[in-house]
Design a protein around this nucleic acid. Structure first.
Length: 858
RNA sequence: GGGCAGGUGGCGGAACGGUAUACGCGUAGGUCUCAAAAACCUAUGGAGGCAACUCCUUGAGGGUUCAAAUCCCUCUCUGCCCACCA
């Protein structure tokens, strides 16, 4: 037997594939297109983690499979190379981030290439390359021109360690604290002037185009019906839901409550006595509510601690000092305290201040409490304790009146007790002329009655993109004293990121200290001006990279409209579930924007056949590989598996097969070094099969129907499993076939060839070696046609009929496939074993499931 | 507190109304060998029995059904996500 020298063989094929550019995606191909997108990695200094190749192998299998099925596949790789970790690492080792990034990419590329992934390397991109970020800057300018990039003062999330602003999406919860997604330091709130992208302008379409979801379909609905119900997006249900939740749309009304204070009473008296016309406009507190129907039950108002009416004491609050102390305390609360105290609703009443319920005209108290958020709605609420659990808790604690105004049953013989009332719809009670009206209708009638406005409110806020750090895309803007903010003319792009001696963060952008960079002329008036020293959030870089792959070397445009439209939308995207609200939402926004601006047109050969405003049609998440100890892999736990060592010891094909065999693709599994051995044995046996069997190899098909049936069943199974990403069962099916092949006295060469084709996407190096060197073919396997199964050959001639008596399996018998119920019954009832159970009794009922079982009840 | 996913041998998992434990790992015994490794063969959920066989078993309990790991209800545990959004 020839030893399988994986090192030599894997290297040989990788070089040939690369040199001959066999995986080049042809823009002009006549074949139907398939765009398969790989999450381009952030090239960290640590290099590849065993988790990376799991997603990559799955995509590579799928890409190779699609090629064999006759598609022209666009499948490429690139580097999301800007960003904090590289910069922080560079600071640590005292190097330039540019050098560090270059070295990291080189290392990543070396590792990735050792796995033999079938990328079109001519399309490799790098976000830190001026040829790429020139177009990121171009994109920013287009957004600016449309008023979608703007500067505003806002409270931002500030990471004190990284000394930069973070987007809301980049702030995560850990142990009850708001921490930086990257470095896990606690985030503080800071008021700063910032660049924002107006994603909120696209919010309706971002919801709408996710589709209606499949919630209305019952479980029996076909997969196709489900996909159609979602519009054209085939995404995991949970991902769609999370994005919708993040956008957080709610419909309600803005209602105004007039404020009465000691001071306004005095004004009123003064007005009366002097008979002056009303020149002082009354003060109002505006609230947002989704339940305007419950207005008659609003028994008090609550302001958030951040509310501007209590910022200075213009209302003349009598206990202002106490209020201030409360606000200060609320501000200092950590996320953890907020969480644990969520049930314990604290608050202070504003003394000397009352509000008028516009429906009842009653005076109601006004409170400040930190259960009301300053950042949502108007920062103030009307509290309806009977119909809101939080208000109920607060009212109970502070002894405020509770008035029920919606009754689930009407006419109401008995209304349910209060704590059952909360959210339900029903009919109005105790609400003046609205009594008896359906609450849903009353929402808008009552809003109209008190002069309120309908309002749609979202949780999502505009995307903050300013970063006060060095290693990113310079924002292509110029500040001119005369002309204001002026974009850099497009002919002057890119604005190059200068090499700085000292690029460390100092709380202000490092670029600000480079006079050479900052000082410039205003493109409008020609006067002295300054460049914007901030850099862009790296999520801007990655929000359009999939478009660049379609035309990566274009130096006139970010991409050619026809090329982009030919390849887009992405047909299949595998991505970690952690990107659900960040990258995916941003990418959808940018695609819609570019579509609106006419840079993208109808999709080319895609299945959608028409317009696309969605970048990613089919989306799946890859499950995390965890350490052998069941813990997440991390350096500190010492449970990290290094792919370099694995590749050295067992080679790429074995790692690929093992990672696909571990379990369901979208679920996480612990790493098992012993398990790798199983994959290795499997491939060794595939290899050995020929050497051992070359005596047995037979040019002609044998008449072994059983073997032929298994072969065709395996073709069917593997084909379907790749389509559905059930790689573990696909491999198991191939193992079963291999077990059987080993038992054959005469193994037809044709069968072996079919098997090698099935194996090719999983273990491409070994398959290619066998195909060329043993089976003596000149073509590459991915140019071969994917095997098709013959439905006729799959049909069983016989099957095992299971015999159940009174619901228990008691016997079984081999029978002809076409056996009728009458025949089966006769045969079964004649069996001794069955007779022993029946003891002469007559069966009451017989259930026959063709091809499976017969169930006798007596 | 809410949402989602899930709990099947010693382990990863398969089956998703129709013979539970496919496939792989591990373990035990065997073949080969002076020996060991590798490779190959056999066995391998639990209890009982010399045996043929019988009973039990998919987190716990209940229900539907001729038949439930699978469908329904209650509980429980684990993982992930969200978390006062009016």
């Amino acid at each position: 037997m020839i030893k399988y020298d994986f090192k030599k063989i894997e290297k040989k094929w990788q070089e040939r594939w690369l040199d001959e550019k066999v995986f080049r995606a042809d823009d002009k191909s006549k074949k139907p297109k398939f765009y398969q997108l790989e999450t381009f990695p952030y090239p960290s200094a640590e290099g590849l983690h065993v988790g990376h190749p799991k997603g990559y192998t799955a995509e590579d299998i799928h890409a190779r499979f699609m090629r064999m099925r006759g598609y022209e596949v666009l499948y490429a790789m690139g580097w999301d190379a800007f960003g904090l970790p590289t910069e922080n690492y560079a600071i640590k080792v005292g190097k330039n981030p540019k050098e560090v990034a270059k070295a990291n990419i080189k290392n990543f590329k070396r590792q990735v290439q050792m796995f033999g992934f079938s990328y079109d390397w001519d399309r490799e991109i790098n976000t830190s390359d001026p040829e790429y970020y020139k177009w990121t800057q171009w994109l920013f300018i287009q957004l600016f021109k449309k008023g979608l990039a703007y500067r505003a003062k806002a409270k931002v999330n500030w990471c004190p360690k990284d000394m930069t602003v973070l987007a809301n999406e980049q702030v995560v919860q850990q142990n009850g604290k708001n921490v930086c997604e990257r470095c896990k330091s606690e985030v503080v709130q800071k008021e700063m002037e910032q660049w924002f992208l107006k994603i909120t302008d696209y919010v309706e379409r971002l919801i709408e185009d996710l589709g209606p979801g499949t919630a209305t379909l019952d479980a029996t609905a076909s997969k196709k019906a489900k996909v159609e119900a979602r519009g054209s997006l085939d995404w995991p249900e949970a991902t769609i839901k999370r994005q919708k939740d993040w956008i957080g749309k709610s419909e309600g009304a803005l209602l105004k409550f007039e404020v009465r204070t000691d001071r306004s009473d005095r004004t009123l008296q003064a007005k009366r006595s002097s008979k002056q016309s009303d020149r002082t406009t009354p003060t109002f507190i505006e609230v947002f509510t989704t339940r305007p129907d419950t207005l008659f039950g609003a028994t008090y108002l609550v302001l958030s601690p951040e509310h501007k009416l209590i910022g200075n004491n213009e209302l003349g609050i009598r206990n202002y000092e106490e209020i201030q102390r409360y606000i200060e305390k609320a501000k200092r609360k950590t996320g953890l305290e907020r969480m644990t105290e969520a049930k314990d609703k604290t608050g202070v009443e504003l003394e000397g201040v009352k509000a008028i319920n516009p429906a009842t005209k009653e005076e109601i108290p006004v409170w400040v409490a930190d259960y009301v958020l300053g950042s949502y709605g108007t920062g103030a609420i009307m509290a309806v304790p009977a119909h809101d659990e939080r208000d109920f808790d607060f009212a109970t604690k502070h002894n405020l009146p509770i008035r029920m105004v919606v009754c689930p049953h009407y006419p109401a013989p008995t209304c349910p007790v209060l704590d059952e009332a909360y959210l339900g719809e029903g009919h109005m009670v105790d609400s003046g002329k609205f009594d008896g009206m359906e609450s849903e209708k009353a929402k808008w009638e009552i809003t109209k009655f008190v002069g309120g406005k309908r309002k749609v409110q979202y949780k999502i806020r505009d995307w903050s993109v300013s970063r006060q750090r060095y290693w990113g895309v310079p924002i292509p803007m110029i500040h001119c004293e005369k002309c204001g903010i002026v974009p850099v003319p497009e002919r002057d792009l890119p604005v190059l990121l200068p090499d700085l001696e000292d690029y460390r963060p100092k709380g202000k952008p490092p670029l600000a200290s480079s006079e050479k960079f900052i000082k410039t002329k205003c493109p409008k008036c020609g006067g002295e001006a300054e460049r914007e020293p901030e850099t862009l959030d790296t999520f801007v870089d990655s929000a359009w990279y999939y478009l660049r792959y379609t035309d990566p070397h274009n130096d006139k445009m970010p991409f050619d409209k026809l090329r982009a439209s030919h390849w887009m939308p992405v047909d299949f995207y595998v991505i970690g579930a952690e990107h659900t609200v960040l990258h995916l939402l941003y990418s959808r926004f940018i695609t819609k924007f570019l579509h609106d601006e006419g840079y993208l047109s109808s999709g080319g050969g895609s299945a959608t056949g028409g317009k696309f405003q969605e970048p990613f049609l089919k989306l799946r998440h890859v499950g995390l590989i965890i350490g052998a100890d069941g813990q997440k892999m991390s350096k500190s736990r010492g449970n990290v598996v290094n792919p370099d060592e694995l590749l050295e010891v067992v080679g790429a094909d074995v790692v690929r097969v093992y990672e696909m065999f571990m379990g369901p693709f979208d679920q996480g599994q612990p790493w098992d070094t012993q398990g790798v051995l199983g994959a290795e044995r499997f491939l060794q046996r595939v290899w050995k099969l020929y050497s051992d069997a070359n005596i047995r190899m037979h040019a002609n098909d044998t008449n072994n129907a059983n073997f032929g049936r298994l072969l065709h069943k395996t073709i069917k199974k593997v084909t379907e499993d790749i389509e559905t990403l059930n790689f573990n069962t696909a491999i198991s099916a191939m193992m079963i076939l291999l077990n059987e092949m080993e038992k054959q006295d005469k193994l037809p060469v044709k069968s072996y060839e079919l098997f090698v084709k099935l194996l090719a996407p999983f273990a491409p190096h070994m398959a290619e070696e066998i195909w060329h060197e043993i089976l003596d073919h000149k073509t590459y396997l991915h140019e071969e046609k994917w095997p098709e199964y013959d439905p006729k050959l799959i049909k069983e001639e016989k099957f095992t009929l299971v015999i159940q008596i009174n619901g228990r399996v008691r016997d079984s018998v081999e029978v002809e496939a076409g056996i009728s119920q009458a025949e089966a019954e006769k045969l079964v009832l004649a069996r001794e074993k069955v007779r022993a159970y029946l003891k002469g009794a007559k069966p009451k009922k017989v259930i026959y499931v063709p091809g499976r079982l017969i169930s006798i009840i007596f």
